[in-house]
């Protein structure tokens, strides 16, 4: 595995982490976090830790993303109209 490929992955990882923390839109932040998890899994594979990579890929891209999406759709945003509160 060449060192340039690893440097590219690390730079992209930093970009996705910054996107996840700084994005105004909540949904974009969740998607960026999911991409972050996948890249982290690839880096774990490169660092010879397949067990951790398997966990990272499943948990971060599958379970955590879907849990965040469910939580996003269950909660009310600040700009929403208040009469949505009646139907739950």
């Amino acid at each position: 595995m060449s060192i340039t490929f690893f440097a590219f992955l690390a730079a992209f990882l930093i970009v996705t982490a910054l996107t996840a923390s700084e994005a105004r839109d909540m949904l974009s932040a969740v998607i960026a976090l999911s991409v972050f998890g996948i890249l982290m899994a690839i880096i774990f594979v490169i660092l010879q830790a397949p067990d951790v990579a398997l966990t990272q890929a499943i948990i971060n891209s599958g379970l955590v993303t879907s849990l965040f999406l469910v939580a996003y759709s269950q909660t009310r945003k600040r700009g929403d109209d208040p009469d949505r509160e009646n139907d739950r």
Binding site: P50, D51, A53, L54, T55, I58, I59, G62, L63, S66
Partner: peptide
């Protein structure tokens, strides 16, 4: 297979259980 082969190949209870849970999702 991830759960049962946990002591032979990468994987184990945590990983296989998470894959099982994605079926629920």
């Amino acid at each position: 297979s991830i759960i049962v082969m946990g002591h032979l190949s990468p994987g184990g209870g945590f990983q296989g259980g998470s894959v099982m849970a994605t079926v629920t999702i």
